[in-house]
Computed example of a mutant assay.
Amino acid sequence: MTVEANRKPAKNLASDTAGIMAVVVGPSGAGKDTLMNLAARHLAGRPDVHFVRRIITREGDAGNEDHKSVSDADFDALQRAGAFAVSWEAHGLKYGIPAAVRDELALGHLVIANGSRSVLDRFQTAFPRLKVINITAQREVLAERLMARGRESREDVLKRLERGSLTVNGSYDVANIDNSGTLEEAERAIIAELEALIAR
C-alpha cells in the first residue's frame, strides 16, 4: 500500500510515535530504488506496511521510482498548505513526504520512505521512531554502475565518489546494507531489516 499526498492527515489519532518510519538512503549507484521496489513486492498486501509515494518536481516517467510529479508552483502550494511531513531540495528538484504518513504511524504501522542523508535531521524531528537503512556498495562497484549510465565521464564519477561519504553521520539508528555482491543477497538483507521492524 502506498501513501498518497492528497490524503488529509486524520485528526484525533494516537501519537505518531506509535509506528516506525524507515528511511532508505544511499549514494547514487548503490541500488536503493531497486531494493525498495523488491521489498515492496515482497511485502505487498500487508495492511501494516506502507511504502511512501513521494512528491517530486520531475517528470512522472523519470527515474526508477513511482512518484507523483508536480510543478514547482504546485509543490510550493502544497508546502504552504502543510501537505508535507518532510521536504527538501536536491540537484535542482524538490522532494516531499506526504503528511498523511502520520495516519499510518499513529496506527502503529511501518512506513518506508526514500530519503536523503543530507536531511536526516528533518526526518528525526518529524518521526521520533526513525530507522535509517543505508544502502552502500564498494566505491569501485559504484563507479562501474555510474559509468554504465553514460551520464558522466570516468573522471567526473571518480571525483564525485572521492567527495562523497558512504556512511551516515549523526546519532541515528542505522542499518548498513552492502549491495556490492549479488542483488539477491541485498534483497534478503533489506527484507530482513524491514521484517524485524514489523516485529517490534
Rank of each mutant, 00 (worst) to 15 (best):
N134D: 11
V101K: 07
I135P: 09
A126S: 13
R117I: 02
I135E: 07
I133N: 06
G92Q: 07
A137Q: 11
I112S: 12
V132C: 11
F127T: 06
H109A: 04
D121L: 09
A126M: 08
V119T: 12
A90T: 10
G92F: 04
S118C: 01
S118E: 14
N114G: 08
E140R: 02
F127R: 07
K94T: 10
E89Q: 14
I133K: 03
G96D: 02
G108Q: 09
G115F: 05
R139E: 13
A106Y: 05
V101W: 05
L130D: 09
G115W: 04
K94W: 03
G108V: 01
A126G: 12
G96W: 01
V101L: 13
G92W: 02
I135R: 06
A126Y: 11
Q138W: 10
D103W: 01
L105G: 12
R129S: 11
H91Q: 06
Q138M: 02
F127V: 00
L105N: 10
N134V: 08
G96V: 01
L105D: 06
E104Q: 15
T125L: 13
G92C: 05
R129I: 00
D121I: 00
F123C: 04
G108S: 11
T125I: 05
T125A: 15
H109V: 00
Q138F: 07
H91E: 02
I97V: 15
K94C: 01
A113V: 14
D121G: 15
H109M: 00
G115A: 04
K94M: 12
G108E: 06
H91D: 09
R122T: 07
L120Q: 08
L93R: 12
Y95E: 03
G108N: 11
A113K: 02
D121T: 13
